[in-house]
């Protein structure tokens, strides 16, 4: 058991799939059916001509479980490629968040100050609210939200992580 805990790690996995109906359900069903964790999952078409979508899933487990997850993903018929970015080398992970803060007076000033420090952009403003847009890794967004909480944090919408390997190597079909 202690061995398992030591091997427990987080993994960011990129999956290139056919852009077809049901493919996301297959991936999600695999995770729920086999009891794997999903910390975040994002999906969008990335190549219309070749009908490809890219799924980025952040998961965690023992080394053996992560290997299983990759093998299970890889054997789905509409899956082209599976890449464990955590093992592929240095990679970038980004998340987009839209954060609504409601308040008045000094709180509004403080909110703008913090946003500036975090390089969050104001994308909507009313006399009693702001919507900030920010990108970064999950920790940065967490930190920003935590600071905003006493100031009037009302609503958060986050994309979950997208990721890509640094340098010239690429995940393509």
């Amino acid at each position: 058991m202690s061995d398992n805990l030591e091997n427990f790690r987080s993994a960011t996995i990129a999956v290139l799939v056919e852009n077809e109906a049901g493919v996301l359900a297959r991936v999600i069903g695999l995770f729920s059916g086999r009891g794997y964790n999903i910390e975040s999952l994002t999906v969008a078409p990335v190549d219309e001509d070749r009908r490809l979508s890219r799924i980025t899933v952040v998961t965690s487990g023992t080394g053996m479980v992560i290997e299983q997850i990759k093998a299970q993903l890889d054997r789905l018929v509409p899956v082209h490629k599976v890449s464990d970015l955590s093992l592929a080398g240095p990679h970038l992970v980004r998340e987009l968040a839209l954060i609504k803060v409601v308040g008045s007076g000094e709180h509004r000033v403080e909110a703008l100050r913090l946003a500036d420090a975090f390089r969050a952009r104001v994308v909507d403003a009313t006399t009693e609210s702001f919507v900030f847009e920010m990108t970064g890794n999950a920790d940065k967004i967490d930190a920003f939200c935590n600071l905003m909480r006493p100031i009037g944090l009302k609503e958060v919408s986050r994309t979950g992580a997208v990721a890509i390997v640094r340098g010239s190597s690429a995940l393509t079909v």
Binding site: M64, A71, R75
Partner: peptide
Amino acid sequence: IDPSSINKNVK
């Protein structure tokens, strides 16, 4: 023939 069968239960 199924890579997902390997190292699933037994290393």
